[in-house]
């Protein structure tokens, strides 16, 4: 029986480690971080009652959500209403499969990893749209429609930005993309692509200034107006997981993944174990930085209007990303 090859066992271990040990708790940690950072920005104290420094606050939140009554609107579609919250969570978890946490620490080194990422990331919009439709509420419907339009519009510039990265790495494998950045991070080689990718990531994660989908002020709760209990909890969880994923992707594609800046110049040869530990910490530090930026932006900047969002996506970002792609392709061709 060659089913359980060492390779497979290692990838299963990495997968379990990544999802159970990192991604699921990360949502809780990010919830806590968001509330603390928001409090810091707003001159408040923030949660400090449950556990030391309020660290158990997310668990108290989840406990509260579980104990809430689960309501489905009578005129809504019960099946879709129940299925919808699962979609964003599942897609968020699936994304991690191809992200390398360190040298060789990756669940699956797909040769089309970049395409896989784009494909899976765009699936989560189905959850939001389904939720908006299945609730049979006008506010939810508007939220769902906004989300569909937004995702489609920002998918394109994001795809072009990622394509320019693939050009530079001359590979569609995420591991190759990271390894190509050992010396020069792509933020230096492809700054415009980086900006486009970061903006599009904010839009994909439905965070301020692109959080029109759940614009509290006009749409009450947007697509999750009619959700309660753990169904709402799933959306909540998924939102924070998407923030984590987006931060990971930004670090992976443009900030060298698990590489320290200009590492080949000064980093001595390390034992594989030590190197692995260092890699994971470097990667996590970069991710945490971007998570902080996500939170920081959310609590400082107002929100776009729907037409402004569309204009930015279609008439600014898309042409810019295409031009950027062409320029990089031509330069690479000339250099040979």
């Amino acid at each position: 029986m060659e089913l359980f090859t060492p390779e497979l066992i290692k990838s299963i271990l990495v997968m379990l480690g990544a999802t159970l040990g990192f991604l699921l708790p990360s949502a809780a940690v990010v919830v806590y971080a968001e509330r603390r950072v928001a409090a810091f920005i707003q001159n408040r104290v923030g949660p400090n009652r449950v556990g030391p420094f309020g660290l158990l606050q997310p668990f108290a939140d989840v406990l509260k959500l579980i104990m809430k009554e689960d309501v489905t609107p009578t005129q809504g579609n019960r099946m879709l209403h129940t299925l919808a919250p699962l979609v964003p969570v599942v897609t968020a978890l699936m994304t991690v499969a191809v992200i390398p946490f360190g040298d060789g620490l990756v669940v699956a080194n797909l040769n089309v990893g970049v395409l896989y990422l784009l494909a899976v990331a765009s699936l989560s919009v189905y959850g939001v749209t389904m939720a908006g439709w299945a609730s049979n509420s006008k506010y939810s419907l508007l939220g769902g429609l906004r989300s569909a339009a937004q995702m489609v519009s920002y998918e394109l510039p994001m795809g072009m930005a990622v394509a320019s990265v693939a050009l530079l790495a001359s590979s569609l494998s995420v591991v190759d993309v990271v390894n190509a950045q050992a010396m020069w991070w792509f933020i230096f080689l492809n700054p415009i692509g980086a900006v486009i990718f970061i903006v599009a990531s904010f839009a994909e994660a439905n965070r301020t200034p692109f959080d029109l989908v759940e614009a509290e002020q006009e749409l009450v709760g947007g697509f999750h107006t009619e959700y309660s209990s753990m169904k709402f909890g799933m959306f909540f969880l998924a939102e924070y997981m998407h923030v984590v994923i987006a931060s990971m992707l930004i670090s992976t594609f443009f900030f060298g993944g698990y590489h320290l800046p200009f590492a080949p110049l000064w980093l001595p040869e390390l034992s594989p174990f030590l190197k692995g530990v260092l890699d994971i910490h470097v990667f996590l530090a970069k991710t945490v930085f971007w998570i902080f930026v996500f939170i920081w932006v959310r609590w400082t900047i107002p929100r776009f209007k729907f037409d402004q969002l569309m204009r930015l996506g279609w008439s600014r970002l898309l042409p810019l990303s295409i031009v950027n792609f062409m320029v990089i392709a031509i330069v690479l061709y000339l250099i040979g």
Partner: peptide, 15 residues
């Protein structure tokens, strides 16, 4: 400003 989406502002003016 909060209605426009920037929530922190509300807390700053309230202080």
């Amino acid at each position: 400003v909060m209605d426009a989406g920037a929530i922190s502002f509300f807390i700053w003016t309230f202080r």
